[in-house]
Amino acid sequence: MSVELNHTIVWSSDKNHSARFVADILGLPEPGSFGRFRVLELANGASLDFADREGPIARQHYAFLVSDEEFDAIFARIKEKGIRFWADPGQEQPGQINHRFGGRGVYFEGPDGHNLEALTAPYSEAEA
């Protein structure tokens, strides 16, 4: 049996706003609906299921593997919207991107403080 991630819930103070924000930045179609969720379908069949939650939202990390062309478009939208970005998950290298594993990567925050990442080279291909 092969194991694949099918979906994950993204807790949000406003699921509609959060789902649209991520879709817009990543250049994806408008999120759909399923029950109480706003669903953002990804190319590999997994989905982000945005759900409203009252009170504090625990910050999570979501990384998106993209092509070089997609990275250029995503990074342009981040800069156009004035979204703060970093080269690292600890936010110690502001205003920079990284070049890990022969690719490029950038971290930025979503509406509820989730740490979002776009990267062009998967870490799984990195040498140990």
Rank of each mutant, 00 (worst) to 15 (best):
A58F: 03
F37M: 08
F21C: 08
G35V: 09
A87W: 00
N115P: 06
L65Y: 06
S33N: 08
K15R: 14
E30G: 00
E117L: 00
E30D: 15
A73S: 14
S47V: 02
S67Y: 03
P111I: 02
E117Y: 00
G82L: 13
F37T: 02
N16P: 00
D112L: 03
R38Q: 13
A76S: 05
N44A: 04
L65K: 07
E41K: 09
F37A: 10
G32K: 05
A51W: 08
G27T: 02
G105F: 00
Q96E: 12
E109K: 13
P31S: 08
Y107I: 06
D68P: 08
A76N: 02
E70M: 06
D112H: 04
R77F: 05
W86G: 11
W11S: 10
E69Y: 01
A87R: 01
A58I: 09
V10R: 00
D72R: 12
R100I: 14
P89A: 12
F85E: 11
R53M: 12
F85N: 12
E92G: 12
A128L: 15
F37Y: 11
N98D: 11
V106E: 03
E70S: 10
L116V: 02
S2I: 05
I83S: 05
Q60L: 13
S13G: 14
L26S: 12
E30W: 01
